[in-house]
């Protein structure tokens, strides 16, 4: 199949890439743009490791065609920290609460949490747990992950 030229807007930067239509967004982010913060887990939309924000909404990039992401706003973990220097409050909270173990699920967890806090800045524990139901942590560090997000929510509350 012939490749098509598309423009991806990732973390505010425009990238012109040639992609085959069957290539998924996770593949193009990692293999073409070198943005390997987005992880690939199950490739069936169950584990959440490949979560990115597309037009502000959490999606599984493994089930998103790159051609369908063209022209839309894509946020990956690399674009979360403002200016790239200081950590985003969610990232800092994950570090402070020991919510990072092997780290593989972390980018997806943080972006799913960002999606939640954008919609609801002060979620309850229950709402946090529900919002993370599509993100698996094989280290089973869920309690500390929920604590980290709750800490950011607590700050939003005050």
């Amino acid at each position: 199949m012939p490749k098509v030229a598309i423009t991806l807007r990732v973390n505010g930067d425009l990238h012109e890439v040639m992609v085959a239509p069957h290539r998924t967004l996770d593949e193009v982010l990692r293999d073409e743009l070198g943005l390997i913060g987005t992880k690939v887990g199950c490739r069936t939309g169950d584990c959440g490791a490949c979560t990115v924000l597309l037009d502000g909404k959490a999606v599984s990039s493994c089930l998103t065609l790159a051609v369908e992401a063209a022209g839309r706003e894509i946020l990956t973990i690399e674009g979360l920290a403002p200016g790239g220097e200081e950590l985003h409050p969610l990232q800092r909270a994950f570090v402070e609460h020991g919510a990072v173990q092997c780290g593989y699920c972390t980018p997806g967890m943080i972006l799913a949490a960002r999606h939640l806090l954008d919609k609801n800045p002060t979620p309850t524990h229950e709402e946090i747990r529900r919002a993370l139901s599509g993100n698996l942590c094989r280290c089973t560090g869920y309690a500390k992950i929920v604590d980290a997000i709750a800490a950011v929510a607590e700050k939003n509350r005050s």
């Binding site: 939309g45 599984s60 799913a112």
Partner: peptide, 8 residues
């Protein structure tokens, strides 16, 4: 399903 799947 999940948040991600419901968004898509």
């Amino acid at each position: 399903a999940t948040v991600q799947i419901r968004n898509m």
